[in-house]
Design a protein around this nucleic acid. Structure first.
Lengths: 192, 192
DNA sequence: CCCAGGCGTAGACACTGTCTACGCCGCTCT
DNA sequence: AGAGCGGCGTAGACAGTGTCTACGCCTGGG
């Protein structure tokens, strides 16, 4: 019952197990045990169903960030470190989801304004940067934007092995640390 | 004559004009004036044709970098600025090409080792970083990797407007500059 | 001269997303 | 209480895709 929710759930499982390429409308319907026309009652188009699945990813990412920050340190610079690690961990751990969430050619075509789902997180990032960055640097939105781009780039390049191939690294931690200190200056003390 | 070359050429034009979504095997064949089965004589699969088109992008990017560096400044830090701008300009100007070049889910499935086409450029980046970076920072490969990730992230986020939406910027220049000074320190003097 | 092989054609197949006609079932309104 | 209606899932059609196979042409070498 409630086919709409089950389609999103089944689709999410399929995405996490088989990858984005396997996420066809008919296959989702098949796994949900309904005919291929059934999803149309709840999602006018395939992309709209994919968007709903991606949406789940954004809320999960936000929840992870919130949870980590709730029990995390208080200093803005340290909080940024926590946030960045949560972001990268999410991208690596749930790479199918992350891939879908940033396939704007899929998601944006229906002008579903899904891209704005990431705005609250970006605003949080900007606030923390405003508190943590040295006042001599660029405006906080610029620093935050550059930092976000760093994280996104690290996630993508790492996820398909280009950085392993190019740098020989076996863990994105060093790269993440380099990006963080580059954008924000060195961490004041020990980071867990 | 030489259908193989014409397929790559026609496909490239189609990619630049209509975008990656329009790049179906049959459409390329149609525009080349041959039947839908003809490409198979030269490319065993659709992905292999796409890879050939992407390859063109990598060589073009390398050529642009070489040209810009040939007439550019001599100081490593300034050369890195030139290189970064060439990279970002390429990604924005030829966004369909860039999108295809980094769609590893398409290109890597045929294990065509196409990803390694970017290695020479990365090695150049690493060398310049080794000469330009302050010796106190991380090893050059790490800094170069983080810088590359920054550039890739900027290119992607900028190309689909997320950074415009989030930061209000109308030009990626400020973001690029912020990323460069973050990773490499401030530019010593004027940059054109 | 002939014939073998490269190359393009044409049709089939399975699969996709979308659209439409249909039927079922439960709810509401008189 | 009975009739009608609207939401929801089914089933089939359609155009489009990538891949495979059988078939012709045409040219170059024995």
């Amino acid at each position: 019952m409630d086919l709409r929710a089950r389609l999103v759930e089944v689709g999410g499982e399929l995405l996490d197990s088989e990858g984005l390429g396997a996420l066809s409308l008919r296959e989702i319907a098949r796994r949900a045990g309904v005919s291929h026309g059934a999803p149309r009652r709840h999602f006018p188009t395939h992309l709209e169903l994919l968007s709903a699945i991606a949406r789940e990813g954004f809320t999960d990412l936000a929840a992870r960030a919130e949870a980590a920050l709730a029990t995390g340190p208080a200093a803005p610079r340290a909080r940024l470190g926590v946030l960045a690690r949560v972001y990268l961990d999410f991208a690596v751990e749930r790479r199918g989801r992350y891939e879908l969430m940033f396939r704007h050619d899929i998601l944006e075509s229906g002008h579903l304004r899904l891209r704005e789902k990431s705005l609250p997180l970006f605003r949080l990032l900007t606030d923390l940067v405003a508190q943590a960055a040295p006042p001599s640097s660029s405006p906080p939105e610029i620093v935050a934007g550059a930092l976000w781009a760093s994280l996104h780039g690290l996630a993508e390049l790492w996820n398909w092995g280009s950085l392993t191939l190019a740098t020989g690294a076996t863990d994105p931690g060093a790269l993440l640390e380099a990006a963080l200190t580059a954008h924000l200056g060195p961490a004041p003390e020990a980071t867990t």
